[in-house]
């Protein structure tokens, strides 16, 4: 599952690609709503004053939607990380290893 909250942790790790390597751009994605509850308040350190409706929407966007198929593209070096079956392929070619 590539939930959007996880996508938010990913940066490009190709050799020499150190600036402007985040966030990876999505392309050709297939989204799937996904049910899970938990970490929102903790991970994002939201101010307590936000109302419940907003939190629910945010929770839905960050944790219940995940990408099943698609590609993530580095905005800097344009390396493509394909996602298949919900698992992103983060492998690099020999010349890209730092």
């Amino acid at each position: 599952m590539v939930r959007l909250i996880t996508h938010n942790l990913l940066a490009c790790h190709v050799k020499g690609c150190t600036s402007n390597n985040f966030p990876l751009e999505f392309k050709d994605v297939q989204l799937v709503p996904h049910e899970s509850w938990g970490i929102l308040r903790y991970r994002t350190k939201l101010p307590r004053c936000l109302d419940d409706d907003f939190l629910k929407t945010l929770h839905h966007v960050l944790l219940e939607i995940h990408v099943e198929e698609g590609i993530m593209i580095c905005p800097n070096c344009k390396h493509n990380y394909p996602i298949s079956n919900g698992i992103p392929n983060m492998l690099l070619a020999e010349h890209e290893i730092g």
């Binding site: 938010n8 940066a11 985040f22 983060m90 690099l92």
Partner: peptide, 11 residues
């Protein structure tokens, strides 16, 4: 899917 010997791209 990742080869840990290639390093991580986590922020």
């Amino acid at each position: 899917l990742q080869d840990i010997g290639q390093g991580f791209g986590f922020r």
